[in-house]
Protein backbone atom coordinates (compact mmCIF):
# COMPACT_ATOMS: atom_id res chain seq x y z
CA UNK A 1 0.00 0.00 0.00
CA UNK A 2 2.73 2.43 0.94
CA UNK A 3 5.47 1.11 -1.31
CA UNK A 4 4.05 3.24 -4.08
CA UNK A 5 7.46 4.06 -5.47
CA UNK A 6 8.27 0.41 -6.11
CA UNK A 7 4.89 -0.88 -7.03
CA UNK A 8 2.78 1.59 -8.92
CA UNK A 9 -0.30 -0.62 -9.18
CA UNK A 10 -3.16 -0.18 -6.79
CA UNK A 11 -4.37 -3.34 -5.01
CA UNK A 12 -7.79 -4.39 -6.23
CA UNK A 13 -9.61 -3.65 -2.96
CA UNK A 14 -8.12 -0.15 -2.84
CA UNK A 15 -9.10 0.47 -6.45
CA UNK A 16 -12.64 -0.62 -5.65
CA UNK A 17 -12.71 1.71 -2.63
CA UNK A 18 -11.50 4.69 -4.66
CA UNK A 19 -14.05 4.03 -7.39
CA UNK A 20 -16.87 3.70 -4.87
CA UNK A 21 -15.77 6.94 -3.20
CA UNK A 22 -15.62 8.69 -6.56
CA UNK A 23 -19.13 7.47 -7.37
CA UNK A 24 -20.41 8.90 -4.06
CA UNK A 25 -18.68 12.21 -4.83
CA UNK A 26 -20.09 12.43 -8.34
CA UNK A 27 -23.63 11.06 -7.92
CA UNK A 28 -25.08 14.12 -6.09
CA UNK A 29 -23.51 16.42 -8.69
CA UNK A 30 -24.94 14.46 -11.63
CA UNK A 31 -28.34 14.30 -9.92
CA UNK A 32 -28.29 18.07 -9.46
CA UNK A 33 -27.32 18.63 -13.07
CA UNK A 34 -30.05 16.30 -14.35
CA UNK A 35 -32.73 17.95 -12.17
CA UNK A 36 -31.67 21.37 -13.45
CA UNK A 37 -32.26 20.25 -17.03
CA UNK A 38 -35.88 19.14 -16.47
CA UNK A 39 -39.08 21.15 -16.65
CA UNK A 40 -40.52 22.03 -13.25
CA UNK A 41 -43.96 20.64 -13.97
CA UNK A 42 -42.54 17.24 -14.87
CA UNK A 43 -40.48 17.14 -11.67
CA UNK A 44 -43.51 18.19 -9.65
CA UNK A 45 -45.21 14.88 -10.54
CA UNK A 46 -42.14 12.72 -9.88
CA UNK A 47 -38.48 13.68 -9.58
CA UNK A 48 -37.52 10.33 -11.14
CA UNK A 49 -38.26 12.07 -14.44
CA UNK A 50 -34.72 13.43 -14.10
CA UNK A 51 -33.38 10.09 -15.33
CA UNK A 52 -35.01 10.34 -18.75
CA UNK A 53 -35.41 12.78 -21.66
CA UNK A 54 -36.71 15.31 -22.65
CA UNK A 55 -34.16 17.74 -21.23
CA UNK A 56 -34.44 21.51 -21.54
CA UNK A 57 -32.41 24.66 -20.82
CA UNK A 58 -35.59 26.51 -19.80
CA UNK A 59 -34.49 26.86 -16.15
CA UNK A 60 -31.22 28.49 -17.17
CA UNK A 61 -33.07 30.92 -19.40
CA UNK A 62 -35.31 31.77 -16.43
CA UNK A 63 -32.22 32.53 -14.35
CA UNK A 64 -30.73 34.88 -16.93
CA UNK A 65 -33.94 36.78 -17.70
CA UNK A 66 -36.08 38.05 -14.89
CA UNK A 67 -34.43 36.53 -11.81
CA UNK A 68 -32.21 38.13 -9.14
CA UNK A 69 -29.45 35.59 -9.68
CA UNK A 70 -27.33 37.63 -12.17
CA UNK A 71 -27.45 40.54 -9.74
CA UNK A 72 -26.19 38.29 -6.93
CA UNK A 73 -23.46 37.01 -9.23
CA UNK A 74 -22.37 40.59 -9.91
CA UNK A 75 -22.39 41.37 -6.16
CA UNK A 76 -20.27 38.29 -5.47
CA UNK A 77 -17.78 39.29 -8.14
CA UNK A 78 -17.52 42.86 -6.83
CA UNK A 79 -17.15 41.79 -3.20
CA UNK A 80 -14.68 38.96 -3.87
CA UNK A 81 -12.48 40.90 -6.29
CA UNK A 82 -12.58 43.98 -4.06
CA UNK A 83 -11.59 41.96 -1.02
CA UNK A 84 -8.82 40.16 -2.91
CA UNK A 85 -7.29 43.33 -4.37
CA UNK A 86 -7.33 45.11 -1.01
CA UNK A 87 -5.93 42.13 0.90
CA UNK A 88 -3.07 41.73 -1.58
CA UNK A 89 -2.20 45.41 -1.30
CA UNK A 90 -2.39 45.62 2.49
CA UNK A 91 -0.58 42.35 3.11
CA UNK A 92 2.20 43.06 0.60
CA UNK A 93 2.90 46.45 2.15
CA UNK A 94 2.80 45.07 5.67
CA UNK A 95 4.80 41.97 4.73
CA UNK A 96 7.53 44.12 3.21
CA UNK A 97 7.52 46.41 6.24
CA UNK A 98 7.82 43.58 8.73
CA UNK A 99 10.39 41.64 6.71
CA UNK A 100 12.70 44.43 5.57
CA UNK A 101 12.32 47.66 7.52
CA UNK A 102 13.34 48.61 10.98
CA UNK A 103 10.95 50.72 13.02
CA UNK A 104 9.98 51.04 16.67
CA UNK A 105 7.88 48.17 18.09
CA UNK A 106 8.34 46.09 14.94
CA UNK A 107 8.53 42.75 16.76
CA UNK A 108 5.75 43.66 19.16
CA UNK A 109 3.46 44.68 16.33
CA UNK A 110 4.21 41.48 14.44
CA UNK A 111 3.35 39.34 17.46
CA UNK A 112 0.21 41.48 17.91
CA UNK A 113 -0.82 40.60 14.35
CA UNK A 114 -0.10 36.89 14.87
CA UNK A 115 -2.38 36.89 17.93
CA UNK A 116 -5.22 37.57 15.51
CA UNK A 117 -4.74 34.06 14.11
CA UNK A 118 -6.13 32.72 17.37
CA UNK A 119 -9.37 34.73 17.25
CA UNK A 120 -12.11 32.79 15.46
CA UNK A 121 -14.85 34.52 13.47
CA UNK A 122 -17.45 33.57 16.10
CA UNK A 123 -15.80 35.73 18.75
CA UNK A 124 -16.03 38.94 16.72
CA UNK A 125 -18.90 38.63 14.28
CA UNK A 126 -21.75 39.80 16.56
CA UNK A 127 -19.98 42.86 18.02
CA UNK A 128 -18.80 43.73 14.50
CA UNK A 129 -22.39 43.53 13.32
CA UNK A 130 -23.28 45.96 16.10
CA UNK A 131 -20.40 48.26 15.16
CA UNK A 132 -21.37 48.33 11.48
CA UNK A 133 -25.02 48.92 12.40
CA UNK A 134 -24.02 51.97 14.45
CA UNK A 135 -22.06 53.30 11.47
CA UNK A 136 -24.87 52.50 9.02
CA UNK A 137 -22.61 50.28 6.89
CA UNK A 138 -24.87 47.27 6.40
CA UNK A 139 -26.29 46.52 2.95
CA UNK A 140 -23.34 48.12 1.20
CA UNK A 141 -20.30 46.88 -0.69
CA UNK A 142 -17.81 48.35 1.81
CA UNK A 143 -19.82 46.66 4.56
CA UNK A 144 -19.35 43.32 2.83
CA UNK A 145 -15.70 43.85 1.87
CA UNK A 146 -14.15 45.40 4.98
CA UNK A 147 -14.35 42.44 7.42
CA UNK A 148 -12.29 40.34 4.99
CA UNK A 149 -9.40 42.80 5.16
CA UNK A 150 -8.37 42.02 8.73
CA UNK A 151 -6.38 39.04 7.45
CA UNK A 152 -3.49 38.25 9.82
CA UNK A 153 -2.71 35.07 7.90
CA UNK A 154 -2.03 37.10 4.75
CA UNK A 155 0.45 39.34 6.57
CA UNK A 156 2.19 36.34 8.10
CA UNK A 157 2.34 34.65 4.69
CA UNK A 158 3.73 37.67 2.82
CA UNK A 159 6.24 38.45 5.58
CA UNK A 160 7.64 34.91 5.31
CA UNK A 161 7.86 35.27 1.55
CA UNK A 162 9.65 38.62 1.64
CA UNK A 163 12.09 37.26 4.23
CA UNK A 164 13.07 34.45 1.88
CA UNK A 165 14.19 36.90 -0.84
CA UNK A 166 17.97 37.56 -0.59
CA UNK A 167 18.74 40.96 0.91
CA UNK A 168 21.59 41.69 -1.56
CA UNK A 169 18.94 42.50 -4.14
CA UNK A 170 17.55 45.54 -2.35
CA UNK A 171 20.96 46.58 -1.03
CA UNK A 172 22.38 46.68 -4.55
CA UNK A 173 19.42 48.73 -5.76
CA UNK A 174 19.69 51.11 -2.81
CA UNK A 175 23.38 51.66 -3.65
CA UNK A 176 22.27 52.58 -7.15
CA UNK A 177 20.15 55.28 -5.56
CA UNK A 178 16.71 53.68 -5.74
CA UNK A 179 14.24 54.82 -3.09
CA UNK A 180 12.70 52.37 -0.67
CA UNK A 181 9.37 52.58 -2.48
CA UNK A 182 11.17 51.87 -5.79
CA UNK A 183 12.81 48.81 -4.31
CA UNK A 184 9.47 47.56 -3.05
CA UNK A 185 7.50 48.32 -6.18
CA UNK A 186 9.95 47.53 -8.99
CA UNK A 187 12.27 44.90 -7.57
CA UNK A 188 10.67 42.93 -4.76
CA UNK A 189 6.98 42.97 -5.64
CA UNK A 190 7.46 41.27 -9.04
CA UNK A 191 9.41 38.52 -7.27
CA UNK A 192 6.45 37.81 -4.99
CA UNK A 193 4.03 37.04 -7.83
CA UNK A 194 3.72 33.32 -6.95
CA UNK A 195 2.85 34.28 -3.37
CA UNK A 196 0.40 36.89 -4.63
CA UNK A 197 -1.30 34.24 -6.74
CA UNK A 198 -1.58 31.82 -3.83
CA UNK A 199 -2.83 34.40 -1.33
CA UNK A 200 -5.08 35.97 -3.95
CA UNK A 201 -6.81 32.75 -4.91
CA UNK A 202 -7.16 31.78 -1.26
CA UNK A 203 -8.70 35.15 -0.36
CA UNK A 204 -11.00 35.11 -3.37
CA UNK A 205 -12.29 31.65 -2.53
CA UNK A 206 -12.88 32.50 1.12
CA UNK A 207 -14.70 35.70 0.24
CA UNK A 208 -16.76 34.07 -2.52
CA UNK A 209 -17.94 31.28 -0.23
CA UNK A 210 -18.39 33.33 2.95
CA UNK A 211 -21.84 32.83 4.41
CA UNK A 212 -22.13 33.97 8.07
CA UNK A 213 -21.18 37.64 7.55
CA UNK A 214 -23.11 38.43 4.33
CA UNK A 215 -26.10 36.58 5.82
CA UNK A 216 -26.37 39.09 8.65
CA UNK A 217 -24.97 42.16 6.87
CA UNK A 218 -26.77 42.01 3.50
CA UNK A 219 -30.46 41.81 4.31
CA UNK A 220 -31.95 43.29 1.15
CA UNK A 221 -32.08 41.14 -1.97
CA UNK A 222 -30.24 43.68 -4.15
CA UNK A 223 -27.13 43.37 -1.94
CA UNK A 224 -27.18 39.57 -1.54
CA UNK A 225 -24.09 37.72 -2.62
CA UNK A 226 -24.64 34.51 -4.57
CA UNK A 227 -24.10 32.46 -1.41
CA UNK A 228 -26.76 34.33 0.58
CA UNK A 229 -29.14 34.56 -2.38
CA UNK A 230 -29.03 30.80 -2.81
CA UNK A 231 -29.73 30.37 0.88
CA UNK A 232 -32.80 32.59 0.60
CA UNK A 233 -33.93 30.70 -2.51
CA UNK A 234 -33.82 27.34 -0.74
CA UNK A 235 -35.47 28.67 2.41
CA UNK A 236 -38.41 29.94 0.31
CA UNK A 237 -38.45 26.82 -1.83
CA UNK A 238 -42.01 25.79 -1.01
CA UNK A 239 -43.41 29.01 -2.43
CA UNK A 240 -41.19 29.47 -5.45
CA UNK A 241 -41.19 28.16 -8.91
CA UNK A 242 -39.91 24.63 -8.70
CA UNK A 243 -37.17 22.11 -8.21
CA UNK A 244 -35.58 22.33 -11.64
CA UNK A 245 -35.23 26.11 -11.38
CA UNK A 246 -33.70 25.80 -7.89
CA UNK A 247 -31.17 23.20 -9.01
CA UNK A 248 -30.28 25.26 -12.07
CA UNK A 249 -29.36 28.02 -9.60
CA UNK A 250 -27.07 25.60 -7.77
CA UNK A 251 -25.35 24.62 -11.02
CA UNK A 252 -25.19 28.23 -12.22
CA UNK A 253 -23.59 29.31 -8.94
CA UNK A 254 -21.07 26.45 -9.02
CA UNK A 255 -19.77 27.16 -12.50
CA UNK A 256 -17.67 30.29 -11.81
CA UNK A 257 -15.96 28.79 -8.78
CA UNK A 258 -15.34 25.45 -10.50
CA UNK A 259 -13.70 27.33 -13.38
CA UNK A 260 -11.50 29.18 -10.89
CA UNK A 261 -10.69 25.82 -9.27
CA UNK A 262 -9.70 24.19 -12.55
CA UNK A 263 -7.44 27.10 -13.52
CA UNK A 264 -5.85 27.64 -10.09
CA UNK A 265 -5.97 24.10 -8.69
CA UNK A 266 -2.31 24.15 -7.64
CA UNK A 267 -2.56 27.51 -5.83
CA UNK A 268 -5.81 26.58 -4.09
CA UNK A 269 -4.44 23.33 -2.72
CA UNK A 270 -1.17 24.97 -1.69
CA UNK A 271 -2.89 27.88 -0.01
CA UNK A 272 -5.39 25.78 1.91
CA UNK A 273 -2.71 23.37 3.09
CA UNK A 274 -0.43 26.30 3.94
CA UNK A 275 -3.11 28.07 5.95
CA UNK A 276 -3.78 24.84 7.82
CA UNK A 277 -0.15 24.16 8.72
CA UNK A 278 0.97 27.77 9.32
Amino acid sequence: MTTAAHNNRLPLTALFGVLLGAAIMVAPLVWTLLLSLKSNSELMRDSSAAFSAPYTLENYRAILVGSDVPRWLLNSIIVSLGTTAAVLMLCSLAGYGFARLDFPFRRTLFVFVLLGLAIPEQAVILPRHQLFATLGWHNSYPGLILPGLAAPFGVFFMTQYFRAIPKDLDEAAMLDGASRLDVFWRILLPLTLPAQATLGVFTFLGSWNDYWWPLISATTSDKYTLTVGLAAAQMNYAQTSGLGFLMAQAVFASIPILIVYIIFQKQIVQAMAGAAVR
Partner: peptide, 12 residues
Protein backbone atom coordinates in the same frame (compact mmCIF):
# COMPACT_ATOMS: atom_id res chain seq x y z
CA UNK B 1 -16.48 19.67 -3.41
CA UNK B 2 -14.39 21.79 -0.99
CA UNK B 3 -14.50 24.81 -3.30
CA UNK B 4 -18.31 24.95 -3.25
CA UNK B 5 -20.09 27.26 -0.84
CA UNK B 6 -22.17 25.85 1.98
CA UNK B 7 -25.39 26.99 0.32
CA UNK B 8 -24.62 25.07 -2.87
CA UNK B 9 -23.67 21.99 -0.85
CA UNK B 10 -26.91 22.07 1.14
CA UNK B 11 -28.94 22.71 -1.99
CA UNK B 12 -27.40 19.63 -3.59
Amino acid sequence: SSVLSVTIVTLI
